[in-house]
Amino acid sequence: MLSLLILFSVYISIFLLGMFMLKAGLYALSGHRLKKWLLHFTKTPFQGFLTGTALTALLQSSSAMMIITVGLVTTGYLTFRQSIGIILGSNIGSTITTEIITLDLGASAIPMLLTGAFFVFFLRHRISYSIGMILIGLACLFFAMKGFGDLAKPLASYPVVYEWLKKTDRSNLLGIAVGMLLASIIQSSAATIGITMGFLHEHLLTLPAGIAILLGANIGTCVTALLASIGTSQEAKLTAYTHLWLNIAGVGIFFFLIHPLASFAGSLAAKPDVQLAHVSVLFNVLCSVAALPFTRFIEAWITFIHKK
């Protein structure tokens, strides 16, 4: 059991390393223009929404996007109102990662890794370096996803893990709690969803249980922004609180739609892990688009409940 848990931890580390490498490569391609784009294209909530979606997809991390946003609000370059549109967009942009990791490219991981290493260490050019980092990051993601799938059955053979899986299948609230806890500890909702996909792929979890974990992960990932807001301005704190409250509200609504969502996802794809990725996109798009027209109300409400 201990050796499996250590190996599982190694795969989580490889996944997070892949996320970091992918993010670093994409960021290197854009240079320091990300902040300029963020400042220039966020004058209205809709612009902020589109910019948040695009830049989060580019960064491959809603947490990184939130850290940048909180930092810009702290320094006064962005207002709290502008940050709301960015938050809504970042929730959609983050779903690109879950769609990428459903691609069945495990056999290509080693060639991708070797090609990326060649680009990074032997071609002395910024663009070549960036492409190499992206390839290495993708290789790590696909390798880790294969590892999650391979370890799912051996882990499930232990009574403790088996009982936990069964309890999660029976209780959506427990699934949400598990997703929150994992995403808070790992500091990545994508990694949490990736682990869940591994169990789904081996049919060790039902899709409703996977959706519940996904919903919890959306709340757990807010911890990063809350930590980043410690010691910052009041407006920056409000930005972090908004990220948390919007995700809690979305999860509260969709908690009652878990089984209808699971049924609908069955018509979108054959594999349960791909179905979960599609549910992630659907959940975040619906929540963000529904909230976008009410940015003024959201601003007033968050300011009221968190006023000094």
Rank of each mutant, 00 (worst) to 15 (best):
M1C: 08
L2F: 13
L7Q: 08
F8H: 04
F8D: 01
S9Y: 01
Y11H: 09
I14R: 00
F15E: 01
L17N: 03
M19R: 02
M19A: 08
M21Q: 06
L22D: 00
K23Y: 07
A24W: 03
G25Q: 01
L26A: 06
Y27Q: 15
S30T: 13
S30M: 14
G31D: 06
H32K: 10
L38S: 03
L39M: 08
H40A: 13
F41Q: 03
F46A: 06
G48V: 00
L50W: 03
A54T: 09
L55W: 00
T56F: 01
A57F: 05
S61P: 04
S62K: 01
S63W: 03
S63N: 06
I67M: 08
I67Q: 00
I67N: 00
I68E: 00
V70C: 01
T74C: 07
T79D: 05
Q82S: 03
G85V: 03
G85S: 06
G85F: 02
L88S: 02
L88G: 03
N91P: 12
I92C: 09
G93P: 09
I96S: 07
T98H: 04
E99Y: 15
E99L: 15
I101C: 05
L103F: 12
G106D: 12
L114A: 12
A117Q: 08
F118T: 13
F118I: 11
F119I: 10
L123M: 15
H125C: 13
I127S: 11
L135P: 07
L138E: 02
A139P: 05
F142S: 04
G147R: 00
F148Q: 01
G149P: 06
A152V: 08
A152W: 04
L155E: 06
A156N: 07
P159Q: 15
V160H: 12
Y162G: 13
W164M: 14
W164F: 14
K166T: 12
K167M: 14
T168N: 10
S171M: 13
N172T: 09
L174K: 11
I176N: 04
G179E: 05
L181C: 12
L181T: 10
A183K: 02
Q187R: 11
Q187D: 07
S189P: 10
A190L: 06
T192M: 07
T192D: 04
G194S: 14
T196M: 08
M197Q: 12
G198Q: 02
L200S: 03
L200C: 08
A209D: 03
G210D: 00
I211A: 06
I213G: 02
G216V: 07
A217Y: 03
T221E: 05
G231F: 08
T232K: 09
T232H: 13
S233M: 13
A236D: 05
K237C: 05
T239H: 04
T239A: 11
H243Q: 13
N247L: 07
A249L: 13
A249Q: 08
A249P: 10
A249N: 08
I253A: 14
F254P: 07
F256R: 11
L261R: 04
G266K: 14
G266F: 09
S267V: 11
L268P: 11
A269T: 15
A269L: 11
P272M: 12
V274G: 08
V274A: 14
L276S: 10
L276I: 12
V279N: 06
F283I: 13
V285Y: 04
L286G: 06
C287I: 10
V289I: 13
V289L: 14
A291D: 08
A291S: 14
L292W: 09
F294G: 12
E299L: 07
E299G: 08
I305C: 02
H306V: 01
H306E: 03
